[in-house]
């Protein structure tokens, strides 16, 4: 009796797994169909072969390897997304207006247009110049996109792409497509130069640490505190709407240290000569250009731009905006050689 029930239950379980496998296989088939000559026999022979395809796509994604998920470069401009942009005559890019040296507007700018400037902005201009061409002043429109609106703005077509210190992650890959990485960074500690804090280590004991609400930095600190990788006496209760607000709290003495992307921490250090990056980055992250998930032609086209940009352009932009705070040697910031899917 009990054996029969067990058998029935296990059959039921397998039935569920089987159904899911079939569903996955079908989804994967449709998703992969246009990309490559999908072997249709995979669907016929059943679960095994197809589910491996699934893994490679999303579920088995490791954040450390998420940057390897982009599509190979191509200078083909016949795809419908690229063609639509070229026809429109300008590229719409979602950017930040508050990240000093990355994407920001100088309030004292002499120019009437109060242009945006920074490392991200340089890259956006380069992409527009290569894809749209024409007058560099007229081939691009910037839209200020708040951090939590980056993905919705892409999904509902408000912007063609987001160039806004956006880390490539598995979670985001479910909603948007990323270009190959264009910058390497990692979570880092920022503290006053005179502080005893010397990195992401025991020197953070009994210190108050500021992070942005809902940021990867906070998630990491919370997880590390749980697992004991961060001293339990560190106080991570201060969270603010924007990472820059952490520098305000730091200057006012309300917190002792800030944890954020090294690149953004450098942008904060650039605004206050009395604070500095402490220790080495304790994670490795890559910034990528985010685009609509189905805009494959655009992803490939942008990757082609990046191929060229890495050779000429990247270094000049780095020297101009980031060398003063990240160091003259760009080795640790330089993106890895792309590993396309």
């Amino acid at each position: 009796m009990s054996a029969a029930r067990r058998l029935k239950a296990s059959l039921k379980g397998w039935g569920g797994v089987g159904a899911m496998g079939v569903a996955c296989a079908l989804t994967a088939t449709f998703a992969l169909l246009p990309l490559r000559d999908a072997p249709l026999d995979g669907a016929a022979t059943g679960g095994q072969g197809m589910s491996r395809g699934m893994y490679a796509n999303a579920d088995d994604c490791e954040d450390a390897d998420a940057w390897k998920q982009s599509l190979g470069p191509s200078s083909d401009e016949g795809g419908k997304t690229v063609a639509a942009i070229k026809k429109r005559g300008y590229l719409v890019v979602g950017v930040d207006q508050n990240s000093y040296r990355w994407g920001y507007r100088d309030p004292n700018s002499e120019s009437d247009s109060a242009d945006l400037e920074g490392f991200d902005i340089d890259l956006a201009h380069r992409i527009a110049d290569e894809i749209v061409g024409g007058d560099p002043k007229d081939n691009i429109r910037f839209k200020a996109v708040p951090t939590n609106q980056r993905i919705p703005a892409i999904q509902n077509g408000q912007v063609d792409m987001v160039v806004r210190t956006m880390t490539i992650s598995c979670k985001r890959l479910k909603d948007v497509a990323f270009s190959a990485p264009y910058f390497t960074t990692g979570q880092q500690v920022l503290a006053p130069k005179s502080s005893t804090i010397d990195g992401y280590d025991g020197s953070l004991a009994k210190k108050r640490i500021c992070t942005a609400t809902g940021s990867t930095a906070w998630e990491r600190l919370d997880a590390d505190k749980e697992s004991g990788d961060l001293v339990s006496s560190a106080d991570i209760s201060t969270t603010v709407p924007n990472q820059l607000d952490c520098l305000v709290r730091l200057q006012l003495g309300e917190v002792d240290a800030v944890v954020t992307d090294g690149a953004l921490a450098a942008s904060q250090a650039a605004q206050d000569p009395t604070v500095a990056l402490k220790g080495k980055p304790f994670t490795t992250e890559y910034y990528g250009v985010a685009m609509k998930k189905d805009a494959e032609d655009l992803v490939r086209r942008v990757n082609q731009v990046l191929e060229d940009y890495r050779d000429s352009g990247w270094q000049q932009s780095y020297d101009k905006w980031l060398a003063p705070t990240l160091g003259k040697d760009p080795a640790k910031s330089r993106p890895p050689t792309p590993d396309y899917r």
Binding site: N98, S99, V248, Q271
Partner: peptide, 14 residues
Amino acid sequence: NRQGYPLGGAYLRY
């Protein structure tokens, strides 16, 4: 803000 730092905006929001 006089120095052109976006930090000024953060202070004003605070």
